[in-house]
Nucleic acid binder design. Sequence first.
DNA 1: TTCGGGCGTTCGGATTTCCGAACATCGCGG
DNA 2: CCGCGATGTTCGGAAATCCGAACGCCCGAA
Lengths: 405, 405
Amino acid sequence: MLKGRRIALVEDDEIMGASIEQRLRLEGADVVWVKLMQRAVGALRTPRAPIDAVVCDIRLPDGTGEDLFATLCRTATPPPFLFITGQGGIDQAVRLLQAGAADYVTKPFEMAGFLDRLAHLLRPKGEAVDQPFGQSSAARRIGVLVAQAAENDRPVLVRGGAGTGKALVARRIHHLSDRSAAPFAEANLSRADDPLAELDAAIAAVGDGTLFLNGLERLPPKGQDRLSVWLDSPPLARLVAACGAGMEAALRDGRFRGDLFFRLDLFEIPIPPLAERPEDAPWLLHRMFDAMNARREMPLRGISALAEQAVRDHDWPGNGRELRARLVQAMATATGDTLFPSDLFPERQTTAADRLPTLSEARDTAERTHILRALERTGGHVIEAAKLLGVSRTTLWEKMQKLGI
Amino acid sequence: MLKGRRIALVEDDEIMGASIEQRLRLEGADVVWVKLMQRAVGALRTPRAPIDAVVCDIRLPDGTGEDLFATLCRTATPPPFLFITGQGGIDQAVRLLQAGAADYVTKPFEMAGFLDRLAHLLRPKGEAVDQPFGQSSAARRIGVLVAQAAENDRPVLVRGGAGTGKALVARRIHHLSDRSAAPFAEANLSRADDPLAELDAAIAAVGDGTLFLNGLERLPPKGQDRLSVWLDSPPLARLVAACGAGMEAALRDGRFRGDLFFRLDLFEIPIPPLAERPEDAPWLLHRMFDAMNARREMPLRGISALAEQAVRDHDWPGNGRELRARLVQAMATATGDTLFPSDLFPERQTTAADRLPTLSEARDTAERTHILRALERTGGHVIEAAKLLGVSRTTLWEKMQKLGI
DNA sequence: TTCGGGCGTTCGGATTTCCGAACATCGCGG
DNA sequence: CCGCGATGTTCGGAAATCCGAACGCCCGAA
C-alpha cells in the first residue's frame, strides 16, 4: 500500500520512532526519520526526493510540530501532515486541522488503524507524465502554469535566467495547446546578428501557430514598434515571449517600452534558477543520464552517490544547460563504469596538490564574504546588517574584529 | 457582531441550551432552538429563512450530532457547524473536522471565546443586503453612504485607491436607486486611449440612467469643459464619478478645474484601502472563495487558518483587485485540497532574491560544501577527512549529522 | 575463532560563541 | 546646550560547540 512512497517521520522518541519506521519500511515505504524540528524544516523544505506525507510528533526537543507546520506553510505547500501526539488536547487538534493538517492521531494507537489513516491521506500517485520540469514544488507549479497557458490563447511571458529551459516551456505550451499542429516559429533575439530580420522571419513563418520570442529584452526599439503593430493587426498566431535577468534594467533604462511589456506580461511563468530548487538537479541528472546512456555504445553502470550529492550542492549558475554540458562531457571522458564527481567537475581536480583549508578557515572566509555582502547591501549600516544576518550587533562587531573588517 | 444572523441551536440540555440561546439573543442573533435530532433535520433542511450557522451538541436523545451532520451533507451543503460537547474525544473532533465541520468546542467553555469562534465561522451568504462591502465599521459606513446616495439624485464622488471597488460602489448606487431600470453607462477614463471619445460615448448611451465616470483625475481639460457644459444642460441622467490617489495632485497642478471638482464633490464616498481595515480582507477572501469554489470542477475543502492569517497581515497595495487576482491564481494552481499561504503568495517561495541568508545559514552551507569536498578527496574516509579539516572525528560526525550528509 | 580498525553513537567537561546589558563616544540637528 | 541615534567597547552568564574518552557494531585479516 505504501510501496514506493516517501514518508517523513518527525519523532524524537527513540522507541516510538523506531517502531513506526520499521513498520513503514515493512510496508515498502521510504522513510526519512528526523528527530529535531530544525532538521525537519531542512529535510522537508529541500528534500532529496519529494515527500508524500509527513508523520509528525508535536512535542520535540527544540520546538513543536505546530511550529514546524506553520514554518513550512509560509514558504511552500507542505505534504499532507499526520500529527501524532501523546498529550495533545482537543483544542490543539481543532487548531491544526483548521490550519490544514490532514489528520491527527493520539498515542498510543493501533498500528493497523494508523497505517490505514496514513494511506488514506496520500494523494493518488501517477502524475509523473505531466511533470517534465522537475520534482520540486516550484517545478510542479511550472507544469501547472504551462497547462493553464496551453488552455487559453493569451500572450505568455516566460521569465528565467540563462539555461533554465525557457524554450522548453514555450515548446511545451505550443505542444499542449490546440495549435500543436500549426507551426512553432522561434526568434532568438539574443543570439541573432540582426534581431529585426530574425523577428520578421519568424512572423513570416508562424502562420496560425505559436510565435516564440526568446531574449525579449534584446529586442531593439524598431523591433518593439514592429511587434506592437503586429499585435494590433491582430495576428492569427499566439505569442509566447521569454526574457531573462536583463529585462528589468531594460525597462528602467527605457530600452524597452513599458506599454508593450505590459501587453505581453498578461500571463507570467517564472522559472526559478536551479540553485533555488536543489532537489531538481539530481532529478534532471538522472533523466538526462538515462536518455543519453541508452544511446551509448558501452552503457555506464550508474552514478556515484557522491556525484549525486555534488550535483545537489553545486550552484549551477548556468542552470540546466550547464548540467547538460557537464553530463555530456562527463560521459564522454568517464574512465570507469560509474560517474564520479571528478567526471562531472573536472576543474576541481586541480586543487589536488595543495592542502585543503581547515574547516574553521573555510568557515571564516565564508563568514567574511557574507558579512561584507551584508554590509554592502546596507551601505555600511552595522545594525541593519546584523539584523539581516540574524545575529546581535555585538556578535557582528566581534566577528568583524576577529576577521579584520 | 451576530446582529441579524440566524443561528440554529441543537441542544437537548435545558440549562445549557437556555443559557446559550439567551446570550445569542443578547448579541442580536435570531436563534432557532431544537432539542431533537429529527426536528433538527427538518429545521435545517427546510428552514423558514436561511440559517447562517449551527451550534450543535453531539449527544442528543434520539441520535448524535454526527448523524445529523452526515444526514444533512448527503442532500445539501449545510451551514457552518460548530459542535459543542461535554465528553467528546480527539478522534471525534478529528473525524468531524475532516468531514467538514467548521469548529469543535468542549464544554464547559468561556462564553466570550465561544462567541468569537462562532462569529469567526459565519460566512457571508450570497448577496447579504446589509453588508455588501465588508464587515469592518468602515465597510458598513460605505454601505450606509451608498444607501443614502441611492435615495437622492445628487452627483456622487467615490474616492479610493486602485482596486478598492469604486465601480462596484457605483453599480450598487445605480442598482438601489429608482433609476435601476435605466441604463448604467460607464466611462473608464484611465484605461481609454481617447478619454474624450469615451466620455462622449457614455453620455450618448446613458439616457436617463446613471453615468459613471471612472478615473476622473485623468479627464483632459476639453473633457472637463464638456462635462461642465453637460452638467449645465441640465442632464436627465445622474452622475457618479470616481477618482483615485492622483486627484489631489491634479487639482494642485491645475490639470483639473477646481470649480468643476466642487460641483462633483457634493456627496463623497471615501473607500479606505484594505490595509486600513484588515478584518475585511479575510471576509472578502471567504466571499470570493465560496463563489469561485462553487463553480469549480473539483471543489477545494477550504482555506487553511494560516492562509487566513497571512491574508489579514498582508498589506494589499492592490486592494480587492489584488486579492481577487491572487485567489484566482491560487485556486488554479493549488496542489492540495486546502489553500495554503504559499498558494496565495507564491512569490514568497523565492526568498533568495531579497533576503540575504542568515550568517549561520551561510556558515552551514559553506561547511557543508567544504566537508563534502574533503570527503570526496579522501574517498569517503571519515577519519582522514577529519584530519584534513582539522577537527576531531566526533566533531565531523556531529556536523555531518546536523547538515544531513 | 580472535583481533584490530573503521565507524556510529553517547557523554561530560573545557572552550568558544552568542547575546543582552551596560557605558563611553561621536556626530547631528533642534 | 541637550537629546538622539548609531557606533565602539567591555563584561558576565547562557548556550553552543568541540573534544577526548568511551562503548558497541561490523567486517576483514590473521
